[in-house]
Design a protein around this nucleic acid. Structure first.
Lengths: 226, 226
DNA sequence: ATTCGACTCGACACGGTGTTGACTGCGGTC
DNA sequence: GACCGCAGTCAACACCGTGTCGAGTCGAAT
């Protein structure tokens, strides 16, 4: 057993001697190679040997750093999801000030974050079907977004800005699912897709009508509700 | 070269002598085996040998019938998509009579058709990332649905039942994408999902609000518009 | 009876994965 | 300064799934 240092491929790097650091360089070299190759061809067409050679090591040595090809992708995805989680920060709190602008901001950030790593995200979407780890991590991210949106919808309903209707969670799932699939089709270019520059506004329109039954939701001025 | 009889795996069976028919039996046996095994494990974990043995033939003989494992899945998908195309039949024409009921009928049929072959559809969704043929066929089906929905939206706008707004095609893409992804999550059980018995009504609600800005769209009585 | 084409499979070549076991070199330790 | 331990390295191997080739069987048509 070769005691791979990052057993799951997800955990932070551990257990290397403090001084030497060729290991860290190699690890990042593998990651960088993967990201570079993903811009050129699909994940399935990249072999472990490609990754190893790209990082200047032999194939067995690759296994010293990652337990599998999938683990590399998972590590890449991990970075992106951290960004995605951070992207929602601060938007929901200020929703009542200007709902339209802030919902738009939210969707735009989602779009920008994933668009900034489109190759990685696209690759993950492709292997999600065959890789349980990626599927799980993805599901977790989505779950957090769903929860946040659900809470926001409930808040808007509570302040009387949005009418009651579908259970907030179901609505949040449907809207987030739509975003995911539309986003994917737009960037993957398979099948019918919305033009990239329109995608945020198209999604926003559906979100607003589904949540508020109008595209111009009521605004609460920043002063508070007397 | 073994001149596989169904070169693409999509074309209808051709060129076998009329009399003997062990070939047809074998072909359907392979298909049946695939469908059976798909209920037990993911497509990626089914080898050509499994398919061949299940159909009572050797692995090389398998290649006489299908050029690859993917071609089998593609043939399976082909059947389903024919059903899916047929499922829309007659619904759009009567939309004005009772829009809510007919949109619901449309979504319900989509749901029922795919739900009736969930293992095949789920498998296709999983390999779509790595298999261009499946991706193409899927995209074609989706494109037809999008076109049909787009036309229906335009018709509803033309008769004054639905307000103008998003380009009808973009809206149709977004709504169909939502359905696809929500449906998938519901059956695949990965990540946040809507309960199976609620899924049609959740989707319907979003469709109606996005198209009509209300969940109770205007009805034209079957007598016509005076 | 011969020929043709549908149909069959044993055996092989190939490519990718994951493992093993032996090796290197440095940093600490007594 | 002999030694130990461990991060790091790789040639070679075992394994598995894919796809191909070539030799073959058998029934129907001529």
């Amino acid at each position: 057993m070769t005691t791979a240092r990052t057993p799951t491929g997800t955990a932070p790097t551990r257990g290397r001697r403090a001084g030497r650091s060729t290991g860290d360089e190699r690890e990042t070299a593998i990651l960088a190679t993967a990201e570079r190759l993903l811009t050129q061809r699909p994940f399935a067409d990249i072999s472990i040997d490609d990754l190893a050679r790209g990082a200047g090591i032999s194939r067995p040595t690759f296994y010293f750093y990652f337990p599998s090809k999938n683990a590399v992708l998972l590590t890449l995805l991990d970075r992106v999801t951290e960004e995605a989680d951070a992207a929602a920060g601060g938007v929901f709190e200020r929703l009542a000030e200007d709902p339209r602008a802030h919902w738009r901001e939210l969707i735009a950030r989602f779009h920008a974050t994933f668009g900034g790593h489109r190759d990685v995200v696209l690759a993950c979407a492709q292997v999600r079907g065959t890789n349980a780890e990626v599927r799980r991590l993805w599901a977790e991210v989505l779950e957090r977004w769903v929860r946040a949106v659900q809470a926001a919808i409930e808040a808007e309903r509570a302040r009387g800005a949005a009418p009651d209707g579908l259970p907030a969670r179901d609505l949040a799932i449907a809207l987030n699912s739509m975003n995911e699939r539309v986003w994917y089709a737009t960037f993957a270019g398979d099948g019918p897709a919305v033009a990239e520059r329109d995608v945020v506004d198209v999604l926003l329109d559906v979100w607003l009508t589904a949540i508020y039954r109008t595209t111009t939701p009521p605004v609460t001025p920043p002063g508070g509700t007397p």
